[in-house]
């Protein structure tokens, strides 16, 4: 079978050109009397007119119908110039910023512990599982992902081409398989937390106060403060972008053509770099930057006083519910004790 040919804009343009060139034949058939040689297409004109050359093929591989796609040049310049610079600058800038903040401001200290040693459950087991699944996957994906363009620049000179190829091979498999863990975790987090991340008035105040990062104050916040909500939505948006583009890349050409595949890579890489930047900030606050925050995701429970300090609105709500327990409301954990 002469393979199915997409109705090409090429044909349309050429048909118009051809018709214009053929002297008005009086026969019913516009073809008769043609001089096919004189009407021959010219590569340069075609490329200028269409930007990409496609035709008919008879082999099963439909991609082969694309004869020339100079867009590969833009892909190359993105992949080899834009992306490494973009990624390098953003990641280094974020790291530098965080380092500066740490050096200037130091760690945000935890408030004094609740005298009664009371804790509240901040994250359920499922939420923590979702978080750590995503987090671990993300680290693997970030490293193996960055390897696609930084590896040969940074790692290969150190370990040699063969070892690097072996590593990259496994890194590729890791990237392709761990991606599913990331997407699963992302899904869990979205389901678990989307409700508590809907912006409201409290967030405006929190943002006005700059989160209190500069003056050391603690503006009121719900379960998640505006900063965390921003983080959440950043992760969701970038994460989804990465996931969708990633899945399309896992099934190459299933839905996209060559230019679509290139675009998927642009989206994937750009979103990934931005997400890495966001996550770096997140990791900083969750570990080095703020005392007590890590515990929330480690054990799930936080000191009551910590909760009151950082998430005052939420803490009061939790306490109020504790006093008047209601039938389990999903998303709001029951008290620890």
């Amino acid at each position: 079978m002469r393979c199915v040919c997409r109705l090409l804009p090429a044909l349309a343009v050429l048909a118009m050109l051809a018709v214009a060139l053929v002297p008005a034949a009086r026969a019913a058939d516009p073809m008769t009397g043609a001089n096919p040689t004189a009407q021959s297409v010219n590569e340069r004109d075609l490329l200028n007119a269409l930007g990409k050359l496609q035709g008919r093929i008879t082999i099963p591989d439909g991609k082969a119908a694309t004869l020339e796609q100079p867009q590969g040049r833009e892909y190359r310049s993105f992949h080899e110039r834009v992306l490494p610079w973009l990624a390098g600058i953003i990641i280094l800038a974020v790291l530098a910023g965080l380092a500066a903040f740490y050096l200037i401001k130091g760690r945000i200290p935890a408030p004094p512990r609740d005298p009664g040693g009371r804790t509240v459950l901040r994250f359920s087991a499922v939420e923590r599982l979702g978080h750590w699944l995503t987090a671990t996957a993300f680290v693997v994906l970030a490293i193996t992902g960055l390897n696609y363009f930084f590896g040969k620049r940074l790692l290969m000179p150190l370990i040699g081409a063969d070892a690097f190829a072996t590593w990259s091979h496994w890194a590729k498999y890791a990237h392709n398989f761990v991606a599913w863990a990331f997407m699963l975790g992302l899904l869990v987090m979205i389901v678990a937390w989307v409700r508590d991340n809907i912006p409201d008035r409290v967030d405006i105040a929190w943002l006005r106060a700059g989160g209190g990062f500069l003056d050391g104050s603690h503006p009121p916040a719900e379960r998640f403060n505006a900063g965390q909500k921003l983080m959440f939505w950043g992760i969701v948006i970038f994460g989804l972008a990465i996931s969708v583009s990633g899945v399309l890349m896992l099934f190459p050409f299933a839905l996209l053509d060559i230019n679509g595949m290139q675009f998927a890579q642009y989206v994937h890489a750009t979103a990934a770099v931005l997400l890495i930047a966001v996550i770096l900030g997140h990791i900083y606050i969750g570990t080095l930057g703020m005392e007590g925050a890590f515990q929330a995701m480690e054990s799930g429970s936080v000191d009551l006083n910590w909760a009151r300090t950082h998430h005052s609105v939420w803490a009061e709500k939790v306490l109020a519910e504790e006093r008047a327990p209601r039938a389990g409301r999903p998303g709001t954990p029951a008290p620890a004790e």
Partner: peptide
């Protein structure tokens, strides 16, 4: 089968000016 190191593509197939490459 399935690996096509070389292929022939026909532009403007079935019309005057048709060319294969």
């Amino acid at each position: 089968w399935g690996i096509n190191r070389r292929r022939v593509v026909t532009i403007n197939d079935g019309r005057p000016g048709e060319r294969s490459i």
